[in-house]
Protein backbone atom coordinates (compact mmCIF):
# COMPACT_ATOMS: atom_id res chain seq x y z
CA UNK A 1 0.00 0.00 0.00
CA UNK A 2 2.81 2.28 0.99
CA UNK A 3 4.61 1.53 -2.27
CA UNK A 4 1.54 2.40 -4.37
CA UNK A 5 1.11 5.65 -2.45
CA UNK A 6 4.77 6.52 -3.04
CA UNK A 7 4.45 5.80 -6.77
CA UNK A 8 1.34 7.94 -7.10
CA UNK A 9 3.04 10.78 -5.18
CA UNK A 10 6.11 10.52 -7.42
CA UNK A 11 3.93 10.53 -10.53
CA UNK A 12 1.99 13.61 -9.41
CA UNK A 13 5.22 15.33 -8.51
CA UNK A 14 6.73 14.51 -11.93
CA UNK A 15 3.63 15.81 -13.74
CA UNK A 16 3.70 19.06 -11.72
CA UNK A 17 7.42 19.54 -12.43
CA UNK A 18 6.96 18.86 -16.15
CA UNK A 19 4.02 21.27 -16.37
CA UNK A 20 6.00 23.95 -14.56
CA UNK A 21 8.96 23.50 -16.88
CA UNK A 22 6.75 23.67 -19.98
CA UNK A 23 5.00 26.79 -18.69
CA UNK A 24 8.34 28.34 -17.80
CA UNK A 25 9.74 27.65 -21.25
CA UNK A 26 6.67 28.99 -23.04
CA UNK A 27 6.44 32.19 -21.01
CA UNK A 28 9.98 33.15 -21.97
CA UNK A 29 9.75 32.18 -25.61
CA UNK A 30 8.65 34.97 -27.92
CA UNK A 31 7.01 34.22 -31.19
CA UNK A 32 10.14 34.94 -33.14
CA UNK A 33 13.52 36.64 -33.20
CA UNK A 34 11.83 39.71 -34.65
CA UNK A 35 9.52 39.94 -31.67
CA UNK A 36 12.53 39.57 -29.39
CA UNK A 37 14.23 42.52 -31.09
CA UNK A 38 11.12 44.69 -31.11
CA UNK A 39 10.62 44.10 -27.39
CA UNK A 40 14.27 44.20 -26.38
CA UNK A 41 16.09 46.96 -24.55
CA UNK A 42 19.47 45.62 -25.62
CA UNK A 43 20.62 45.03 -29.18
CA UNK A 44 23.30 45.84 -31.72
CA UNK A 45 22.56 47.18 -35.20
CA UNK A 46 25.42 47.04 -37.66
CA UNK A 47 25.62 48.43 -41.15
CA UNK A 48 28.61 48.94 -43.42
CA UNK A 49 29.08 52.46 -42.10
CA UNK A 50 28.32 52.22 -38.43
CA UNK A 51 27.60 50.09 -35.38
CA UNK A 52 24.87 51.10 -32.97
CA UNK A 53 24.84 49.39 -29.58
CA UNK A 54 21.86 50.01 -27.33
CA UNK A 55 21.83 48.95 -23.69
CA UNK A 56 18.58 50.48 -22.46
CA UNK A 57 19.18 54.20 -22.14
CA UNK A 58 22.94 53.83 -22.70
CA UNK A 59 24.11 54.03 -26.29
CA UNK A 60 27.37 53.58 -28.16
CA UNK A 61 27.53 54.62 -31.80
CA UNK A 62 30.67 53.95 -33.84
CA UNK A 63 31.26 55.40 -37.27
CA UNK A 64 34.67 55.16 -38.96
CA UNK A 65 37.15 56.06 -36.22
CA UNK A 66 34.71 58.08 -34.16
CA UNK A 67 32.93 56.75 -31.09
CA UNK A 68 29.91 58.38 -29.56
CA UNK A 69 28.50 57.62 -26.13
CA UNK A 70 25.22 58.77 -24.70
CA UNK A 71 24.78 57.83 -21.07
CA UNK A 72 23.67 58.69 -17.58
CA UNK A 73 26.26 58.69 -14.82
CA UNK A 74 24.49 57.63 -11.62
CA UNK A 75 27.37 58.81 -9.43
CA UNK A 76 27.55 62.28 -10.97
CA UNK A 77 23.77 62.33 -11.50
CA UNK A 78 24.34 63.78 -14.93
CA UNK A 79 23.68 62.96 -18.56
CA UNK A 80 26.55 63.00 -21.03
CA UNK A 81 27.02 63.14 -24.78
CA UNK A 82 30.58 62.16 -25.63
CA UNK A 83 32.44 61.98 -28.91
CA UNK A 84 35.83 60.37 -29.12
CA UNK A 85 37.92 60.53 -32.26
CA UNK A 86 41.34 61.44 -33.60
CA UNK A 87 41.02 64.91 -32.13
CA UNK A 88 40.43 63.55 -28.64
CA UNK A 89 37.41 63.46 -26.38
CA UNK A 90 34.61 66.01 -26.25
CA UNK A 91 32.31 65.43 -23.31
CA UNK A 92 29.17 67.49 -22.98
CA UNK A 93 27.07 67.53 -19.82
CA UNK A 94 23.50 67.73 -21.06
CA UNK A 95 20.14 67.95 -19.38
CA UNK A 96 17.51 65.21 -19.57
CA UNK A 97 15.57 67.10 -22.23
CA UNK A 98 18.56 67.24 -24.57
CA UNK A 99 19.25 63.61 -23.74
CA UNK A 100 15.79 62.56 -24.98
CA UNK A 101 16.25 64.52 -28.21
CA UNK A 102 19.67 62.95 -28.86
CA UNK A 103 18.43 59.49 -27.90
CA UNK A 104 15.51 59.47 -30.34
CA UNK A 105 17.79 60.67 -33.13
CA UNK A 106 20.59 58.20 -32.46
CA UNK A 107 18.41 55.11 -32.12
CA UNK A 108 16.39 56.04 -35.22
CA UNK A 109 18.13 53.40 -37.43
CA UNK A 110 16.95 50.78 -34.93
CA UNK A 111 13.44 52.20 -34.62
CA UNK A 112 13.17 52.33 -38.43
CA UNK A 113 14.20 48.69 -38.56
CA UNK A 114 11.65 47.83 -35.86
CA UNK A 115 8.96 49.48 -37.96
CA UNK A 116 10.02 47.65 -41.15
CA UNK A 117 10.28 44.31 -39.39
CA UNK A 118 6.94 44.79 -37.66
CA UNK A 119 5.34 45.21 -41.09
CA UNK A 120 7.32 42.28 -42.42
CA UNK A 121 6.01 40.13 -39.58
CA UNK A 122 2.43 40.87 -40.62
CA UNK A 123 3.25 39.62 -44.11
CA UNK A 124 4.78 36.30 -43.15
CA UNK A 125 1.85 34.40 -44.63
CA UNK A 126 2.23 36.24 -47.92
CA UNK A 127 5.97 35.86 -48.27
CA UNK A 128 7.72 32.65 -49.18
CA UNK A 129 10.67 31.40 -47.21
CA UNK A 130 13.66 30.00 -49.03
CA UNK A 131 16.64 28.71 -47.06
CA UNK A 132 15.68 30.80 -44.04
CA UNK A 133 15.36 33.93 -46.14
CA UNK A 134 12.44 36.02 -47.31
CA UNK A 135 13.19 37.79 -50.57
CA UNK A 136 10.98 40.57 -51.88
CA UNK A 137 11.83 41.45 -55.46
CA UNK A 138 10.52 44.92 -56.20
CA UNK A 139 11.72 44.58 -59.76
CA UNK A 140 14.31 42.63 -61.66
CA UNK A 141 16.86 45.09 -60.37
CA UNK A 142 15.78 45.77 -56.82
CA UNK A 143 15.26 43.35 -53.99
CA UNK A 144 14.86 43.31 -50.22
CA UNK A 145 15.92 40.29 -48.20
CA UNK A 146 15.08 39.52 -44.59
CA UNK A 147 16.99 36.60 -43.11
CA UNK A 148 16.59 35.31 -39.58
CA UNK A 149 19.11 32.79 -38.29
CA UNK A 150 20.88 31.98 -35.03
CA UNK A 151 19.08 34.76 -33.19
CA UNK A 152 20.25 37.36 -35.70
CA UNK A 153 18.32 39.38 -38.26
CA UNK A 154 19.80 40.57 -41.53
CA UNK A 155 17.98 43.08 -43.73
CA UNK A 156 19.51 43.67 -47.14
CA UNK A 157 18.55 46.03 -49.94
CA UNK A 158 20.12 45.32 -53.30
CA UNK A 159 19.96 47.45 -56.39
CA UNK A 160 21.47 45.42 -59.18
CA UNK A 161 24.16 47.31 -61.05
CA UNK A 162 23.97 50.09 -58.53
CA UNK A 163 26.37 50.99 -55.77
CA UNK A 164 23.51 51.95 -53.48
CA UNK A 165 23.28 48.53 -51.82
CA UNK A 166 23.14 48.30 -48.07
CA UNK A 167 22.41 45.89 -45.29
CA UNK A 168 21.69 45.94 -41.58
CA UNK A 169 22.49 43.17 -39.17
CA UNK A 170 20.80 43.02 -35.78
CA UNK A 171 22.39 40.78 -33.20
CA UNK A 172 23.15 40.33 -29.51
CA UNK A 173 19.44 40.83 -28.95
CA UNK A 174 18.82 40.97 -25.23
CA UNK A 175 22.50 40.67 -24.38
CA UNK A 176 24.19 43.83 -25.70
CA UNK A 177 26.09 45.62 -22.95
CA UNK A 178 27.63 49.06 -23.36
CA UNK A 179 30.63 49.72 -21.12
CA UNK A 180 31.72 53.32 -20.77
CA UNK A 181 35.54 53.31 -21.00
CA UNK A 182 37.53 54.80 -18.11
CA UNK A 183 38.97 57.60 -20.26
CA UNK A 184 35.43 58.68 -21.16
CA UNK A 185 34.20 58.39 -17.58
CA UNK A 186 37.13 60.37 -16.26
CA UNK A 187 37.15 63.06 -18.95
CA UNK A 188 36.16 66.54 -17.83
CA UNK A 189 32.73 67.59 -19.02
CA UNK A 190 31.82 70.89 -20.64
CA UNK A 191 28.50 72.40 -19.59
Amino acid sequence: MKSVFKRITALIFAVIMLSLLIMLASCNAYDSVIDSFIKSDNYTVESENYTLMVDGATVNFTMDDTQMYLYYDKGAKSYYYVTQGEEGITKLAIDSEQYITYYKEIVSPASNMASKLSAFKHLRDTLEETDGKYVIKESERNSYTVAVADGEITYTVENEGDTNNYSYKIYNIGSTKVEIPDNVNEAKAID
Binding site: V54, K104, S108, A114, S115
Partner: peptide, 9 residues
Amino acid sequence: VNQVFAYRH
Protein backbone atom coordinates in the same frame (compact mmCIF):
# COMPACT_ATOMS: atom_id res chain seq x y z
CA VAL B 1 6.00 52.03 -34.37
CA ASN B 2 9.24 54.08 -34.46
CA GLN B 3 8.02 56.43 -31.75
CA VAL B 4 6.73 53.74 -29.42
CA PHE B 5 9.90 51.68 -29.92
CA ALA B 6 12.23 54.56 -29.02
CA TYR B 7 10.20 55.90 -26.08
CA ARG B 8 9.93 52.46 -24.53
CA HIS B 9 13.66 52.42 -23.73
